[in-house]
Design a binder for these strands. Sequence first.
DNA 1: GAAGTGTATTATTTGATATAATACACTTGA
DNA 2: TCAAGTGTATTATATCAAATAATACACTTC
Lengths: 132, 132
Amino acid sequence: MDERRIGSLRFTIDFSQPLYEQILSQMRSLIAKGEIDVGEKIPSVREMAHELKINPNTVMHAYQELERDGLTEKRRGQGTFVTNSVTQIRHFKERLALDYTREFLLNMRNLGFRPDEIEAYLEKLTHGKGGL
Amino acid sequence: MDERRIGSLRFTIDFSQPLYEQILSQMRSLIAKGEIDVGEKIPSVREMAHELKINPNTVMHAYQELERDGLTEKRRGQGTFVTNSVTQIRHFKERLALDYTREFLLNMRNLGFRPDEIEAYLEKLTHGKGGL
DNA sequence: GAAGTGTATTATTTGATATAATACACTTGA
DNA sequence: TCAAGTGTATTATATCAAATAATACACTTC
């Protein structure tokens, strides 16, 4: 587990997942939660690679996925910027939320849980002592 | 997408995931839902490999995980059997349900959803027209 | 003892992941 | 103008997980 600060952003890298996926998911989260502003510049490929001590190609991989998500736009010679479209970001969140929820429901149903049981279980876990 | 019947069991194999993981998750589901009875014999490594047209070693991999889950017991010269312990199976379901739910909550929170929003979203999706 | 079990070993292939080194195209600003 | 900083592309290499292949061994049942 390795933690690095890049500008005002905090990144945590380990070896449990592919590096580019870790960058991708953390960047998605930062943008989705508005911790990076709309239109704001994100760290350059080279800076990110240098700070995280990984290869620029690996960062590139993550950044290309971000653009496919519609979350960023690249400007040659300038850098990579979060999209100005709040709508784009909202759509991304809706898309991913739907994916996550469907996967969760499928997993639980494969264990034999019925829809009402799933809701009850989630509620119990959410409201339980200790939270989460 | 390839579908095979092995005895009374139905298996579906594709190339979206590692083969042993597909066997593992489908077998887990069959046992968890009681579609294979407690104490019942499951297909032999060789039979499964032959029917699914894959390598016995790959089936072995999945079966070893099943045993680590506490869902099966192996008897040399006889075969692999679902555990007789209903408690074991219940514990496995509780363990996995907790994992799935925690992962789901983490994913949603990373998108900026608050706990009450997550519950509301799940409920909306579950009770919506079309189901699932 | 033959047939069917799980198990172990060794070798090989394939694809995803990551690194490395380099070069090119574009933009900005001194 | 040109240096510095951007994204991009290419080629080569290394590593590891996943899967296959071929065999052999130990055990159980009939």
